[in-house]
Design a protein around this nucleic acid. Sequence first.
DNA 1: TGTAATACTGTACTGAGTCCAATAATAGCC
DNA 2: GGCTATTATTGGACTCAGTACAGTATTACA
Lengths: 185, 185
Amino acid sequence: MLEDAAAELFLENGYAATTIDQIAQRAGVSRNTFFNYFSAKSDLLWVELDAAIDRLAEELRSTASGRPALAAVREAALRVVADIGVDRVPLALTQDDVMGTREETRSSGLVRLARRSDVIAGFLSRQLGRPADDLLVLSAANALSGAISAAWTVWAHDGIGRGALVDYVSAAFAVVSSGLESSLA
Amino acid sequence: MLEDAAAELFLENGYAATTIDQIAQRAGVSRNTFFNYFSAKSDLLWVELDAAIDRLAEELRSTASGRPALAAVREAALRVVADIGVDRVPLALTQDDVMGTREETRSSGLVRLARRSDVIAGFLSRQLGRPADDLLVLSAANALSGAISAAWTVWAHDGIGRGALVDYVSAAFAVVSSGLESSLA
DNA sequence: TGTAATACTGTACTGAGTCCAATAATAGCC
DNA sequence: GGCTATTATTGGACTCAGTACAGTATTACA
């Protein structure tokens, strides 16, 4: 399987030093087949997160129109993250020291932040009846996505002893929803 | 000059269709010289923003330790942005329709969001006496950087008739600092 | 069995980014 | 003026991600 082969190689030699050819070869498949399943090498680092964002989009899509927007986003985000165990940390986040590639993997991670931001913005736009390119909508969506991102990052870096991701996300939401004014006293 | 040559070519042929060779050639310089001044093609899109982030870092570095953290960030951000006129919109933001490259330029833009986030996180960490990888610090920094980013985006897309960037940034700050709870009523 | 759709592969290509060694230009000094 | 050290620029060769496309195997299904 491509993901397993990639995980092994990344840990053995680092992300940058691993080529797509090597991954395909170890998985016993041709280079082109790799691109049938993943559109970029960096996709392999974010499988868990990508799935979580898909689920978030799903949850938000099936949220009733009347619901208060912020609470709805929080609950959807917590639901998605509730059953993500300690073993499902994205490769890029746990192994960034081993792979020595924090900088290289960062920009691909940011693409996920942006996608989550889009998902949330779409929802807020619908729920608040405001245009999709509204400053309020985009500020809030970016802020929320940024907070969730921080939760994942800190969670991953807390290592073995870390608690449940859901607690981190919950705490991050608290920071931004009740306002930075009070949080940053 | 490299930036001018690039701007012309991007507008003529689009970002993706423009090669570094072409840029260097039009600027009357060798391809390698290009890489002496920019480390990536996408750097050319964000010259204004990069400078603004540098200045933000500067401002924050020279902020007294006692100051309330959030107010200090807001004021620094507003100061930096105060003298950015309607003509200084980053290429990637104004011309993304002309260049037809919104997706391609996005990830390089996100790298800037992350850098600004780092700058803010460093400041908050110092100011609040909390570790740099603290959840509160990172959540707040990401949220603030995300809001600022939204401000730039909306400002750029508002086209010719847009007001001063500083107003957009100010509004974006209001959203996150007083709390999403109240903003998203 | 035949056939259509789907999965896989080979080959060839573009272009970004890196490395290194060589040459030009420049600044500072005597 | 000339001499030297530093910096700017260049050429050339290289790796590798990502794309395009045509051809072959495999599977599914009638």
